[in-house]
Write a protein that binds this DNA or RNA. Structure first.
Length: 269
DNA sequence: CCACGCTCCTGCGCGC
DNA sequence: TGCGCGCAGGAGCGTG
């Protein structure tokens, strides 16, 4: 499942299509989270992508007159393929650049393909997002200040995209473990100092993932894509009932909201 | 403003 | 070996 590091790796991996004119747009299935706009092909054909940006987990393709917005959802991937390679099931969209195509696969169809002709940062999906976790804007201070007078747990705060974007369930679990913070702690009761540590761990975890994935960018672009997705060694995520790597106590699982929360009862307080 | 629950969808793992 | 069930998850959106 693409977390922010995978989306960033994808952004870098599909860089080779920048500057190439779009010769055709093929939509085989427009029923993603929202319907793909029917005018998308008309809006894009003949244009070229000037640059590809990322905001949160959204990929933003600048084509001059507007922006293509792509979200990979839970199961989406974007790959550069040879245009004659036959599409497989769940390959919903091709952006064709002559001999090569950018191909979107998304089995669960939680992803999105949208278009905006206005300023992309004003788009309804992007306008109210919080800070980027890898930017200097994100620090313990952001978490501390947005947590005052809040009753929600620290894990829910960390996953609130109005505060900081791109921290999904896996990175929330892992960062809290690394920071030694129990995920259920009321966010309003955590000190600034502990939030500094937490923000630092979010950055470290994400940077390490990007570096691990970035090292196989060539494979990502030229193969079936699977090798570009690094296999992260998780400390707690998905490890309920297994011994903590740090202390040996068994990792526990609970539910926070609708999501699985993993933690070490000995290392996290 | 805040918190929470619902929803979309398919692949996978598990139990029998 | 095969079948069917339930779970997993990103994040917008509606409700209280």
């Amino acid at each position: 499942m693409p977390e922010l590091p995978e989306v960033e790796i994808t952004r870098r991996g599909i860089g080779p299509i920048v500057g190439l004119p779009i010769t055709q747009v093929v939509v085989r299935n427009s029923r993603l989270r929202w319907p793909i706009p029917s005018y998308l092909a008309e809006a894009l054909t003949g244009k070229s992508v000037r640059r590809i940006l990322r905001r949160a987990k959204y990929l933003l393709f600048d084509v001059g007159e507007g922006w293509l917005i792509v979200h990979l959802g839970m199961s989406g991937s974007l790959r550069i393929v040879e245009s004659q390679e036959p599409p497989r099931v769940h390959d919903h969209v091709d952006w064709v650049f002559g001999d090569v195509s950018l191909r979107l696969r998304d089995p669960r169809r939680f992803g999105a393909v949208l278009w905006t002709s206005g300023a992309v940062e004003k788009h309804a999906l992007l306008a109210r997002l919080g800070v980027e976790p890898l930017s200097d804007e994100f620090s313990g201070r952001v978490l501390y200040e947005s947590s005052r007078r809040r009753s929600a747990s620290v894990k829910q705060l960390l996953m609130d995209h109005k505060v900081v974007v791109g921290v999904g369930n896996i990175y929330a679990n892992e960062s809290l473990f690394r920071a030694g913070i129990h995920p259920g702690t009321p966010s309003g009761r955590i000190t600034k100092r502990r939030y500094d540590r937490l923000a630092s761990e979010v950055k470290l975890t994400m940077h390490a993932a990007i570096e691990a994935g970035g090292s196989s960018l060539r494979d990502f672009v030229h193969s079936d894509g699977s090798r570009g997705y690094f296999q992260q060694q998780y400390c707690v995520y998905g490890r309920s009932g297994l011994p903590c790597h740090s202390c040996g106590r068994l990792v526990k699982i609970t539910r926070t909201g609708q999501r699985s929360t993993f933690y070490c009862p000995n290392c996290q307080h």
